[in-house]
Amino acid sequence: MAHPQIAAFARLANGGQTPSRRIYGQTSMLSRTMHDIRYNSVDDEILVPNPFSNAILTFRGGADGQEPPIRIIQGPNTELNGPDRLDIDVVHREIFVPGRGNVLVFPLDGNGDVRPKRVIRGPDTQVDGSSIAVDPLHNLFATTGRDQSILVFDRTANGNAKPLHVIRGPNTQIDRINQMAIYPAGKLLVVAMPGVQGAMEPPRVFVGMWSLDDDGDVAPKWTITGKQTGLKKPFAVALNPEHKEIYVTDMRLNGVMTFSVPEIFKPVAERAASAGQR
């Protein structure tokens, strides 16, 4: 990309509406391509990885213009190896960073050359570590595994831990996984699936959703895809449970779509009750 930036658009922005603010420039320390961004609603902060400088950057939530990060995790003790994605757990105050075959866990307020609190690594983990999402409510995290799989771990897993669940197989229809997000109340994992790498308009793309209790070769519970959606290469997802919306960025369109999907924003208890009534 010729121009790195973080653009913040009003929730109701539509069409060519300009962003409300942008974070950019040399002092921001941003590089392309940021494959993850998380907003910390408790401390009002924004976190992004910088793979080229081996760093995790934390900005003020209201950062604007050529503003520097307020904290940087970087250094030989961090074990960071081209961090590409991350997620945060604001309840237990941790940052989860998937790496090449591992997951590093840092304190949420970590700064400088800090050692990870935990490292999930080893043959039993099956971790490939290209994407991640954390569920602080059920003490779980999901990450990507070998052979196009989704692995669900206990949040406190450490070392050569085995995943609690492995979602893998032809019924999952996983070609490639990009950004993940979790709706904790629904125990629901939402995943951007941009299709096979390298194809300009891959034949199978979707936003897929699985229960964090799912295991084995299972199809997604829900998907967002099809002609009406206009999706061509969904790269990323973010959730807004308050307004029951999913935000999806599409690489092929260079755009951001908002889908109103109240049907998926149902807490687990509510789902169980409605299933019982049926």
Binding site: H3, A7, F9, D36, D44, L239, Y247, D250
Partner: peptide, 23 residues
């Protein structure tokens, strides 16, 4: 220009009700 280029991630700032789009 919006200058959105290869939006590989998206986030939501619930305080300001803003969609965060990095390139």
């Amino acid at each position: 220009g919006l200058m959105i280029g290869n939006p590989g991630a998206v986030g939501y700032d619930s305080k300001r009700q803003q969609i965060l789009v990095p390139n």
